[in-house]
Design a protein around this nucleic acid. Structure first.
Lengths: 242, 242
DNA sequence: CCAAAAGTGTTAATGCTACACCCATGG
DNA sequence: CCATGGGTGTAGCATTAACACTTTTGG
């Protein structure tokens, strides 16, 4: 069976992934150095073309695995938005379906100097213009960060930045890094632990750090099942900027 | 210059539009009867293929105009999500970029019996399975309604369902229709008029209806400029269903 | 002991819900 | 006059914001 009907207008369809994580208290994004034209040598979002027989989400997963060298990239992947196809690629019209990955800080494997090498960069730098991203990737990154910021308000997705188990303090650090604000540790603790269907106490405690050991939590089953669902009702609001 | 680079994998790219409006107190969606296979005779979302040289949003606008006979369709158009390309069209892989239109109740022009004829249908019927929509359009419609519901909570987009000027009562009717709930008129009035950068009093009043004449409002300039922006902070919350 | 982070209690301000109540029009 | 919807006031409740305070570790 033919996978594409004939005599229909066709477009090259790409996927790009904005992979975000929290490192050293600030929001970082995964970027690759382009080895071919256009924009050879410039930094870009990981991505590539959709091949026959796969959905766009599968293509995003595949590209992410290929360009990081990590077989099963952790975190929460969701679709962001579709851009184009007009005027965003010097080669011609290319449609791209951008995706958003919220992930714990996993190490990128370096395959070799000839492959495209992915690495984490602070979002502030990537949006400041100093890195000069390829294509319209700065705009896509901007949209992705805004999406991530608003998602934290009403969904349990902040936990996607943490590992399987995490402390309330680590979770708060995620909110602070993504929103660029400081939150009151006491009030945050009450809100996070008091929200139904959000967190589950594992009974274990973290060790090693300074200060009193913290209880370890994991996402509640209800929140695991539907990661996009609005379990934080009323929402956890980010402080209004003046 | 060639508009599509050669030797790149290609896909047919469609756009579909979920046009929503409020009629007689309930949420309605614009559907067309398909005149060709596949799904000939079935109801479907208006849409079509993206042609060379246009962005997906432009294609959505164009298809909407073509299939309704209305040159400049009113309301707020935004991208919803992208579906596919696998297994959603019996002809083969087709990617579709779904859009969402929130519009006042405009009359659909009937061009003739041979053209695809668009008309409004209650969302409840379209999602109930009685209408049996073509392709995966029921799923897209479901996502669109959910998006519209959550957008009303924090954005000023409820006004997109009304005309240029509207009363608080008409605005409340939009919330009630989209959310399927009843809201207290007094509290709603206070919240709507008390939210900064949301509504602007025109100074005029509505006439003709039963009861006391109501003041006419329009969207504030700030809300007009960025229709998706979260001006309703804290959000206008829909009553939690038991 | 001291610093640092975890966790609990308390209070004041804010926002929402649920009403009572008055206003202005059409019939 | 009455019904109908527009608009204001207010008391009770829930949530939040701000901060005092205790707990438990590492150095």
């Amino acid at each position: 069976m033919p996978s594409t009907p004939s005599r229909l207008p066709c477009l090259p369809v790409a996927v790009d992934v904005v992979a975000l994580t929290v490192r050293d208290g600030s929001l970082n994004v995964l970027l690759v150095t382009r080895l071919i034209d256009p924009f050879k040598g410039r930094l870009a979002l990981p991505g590539g073309f959709v091949t026959s027989g796969e959905d766009v989400g599968e293509a995003a997963s595949r590209e992410l695995a290929e360009e990081t060298g990590v077989e099963r990239v952790p975190g929460h992947l969701e679709q962001l938005a579709t851009y184009g196809p007009k005027g965003r690629d010097p080669r011609g019209d290319v449609l791209t379906v951008a995706h958003l990955l919220l992930a714990p800080d996993f190490p990128v494997l370096v395959a070799g100097s000839d492959a495209e090498h992915a690495d984490w960069f602070p979002v502030a730098e990537a949006l400041g213009g100093t890195l000069a991203l390829a294509f319209d990737h700065e705009r896509i990154l901007r949209d992705a960060v805004e999406r991530a910021r608003s998602k934290l308000e009403y969904s349990p997705l902040a936990a996607a930045f943490c590992g399987e188990e995490f402390t309330i303090g680590q979770l708060r650090a995620v909110y602070e890094a993504v929103w660029g604000t400081r939150l009151d540790p006491r009030n945050f603790h009450r809100k996070a632990t008091g929200t139904p269907d959000f967190l589950e106490d594992t009974g274990r405690v973290s060790s090693g750090d300074a200060g009193r050991p913290a209880a370890l939590f994991r996402l509640a089953d209800r929140a695991r099942a539907e990661p996009g669902r609005a379990v934080l009702n009323p929402p956890l609001m980010r402080p209004r900027p003046l």
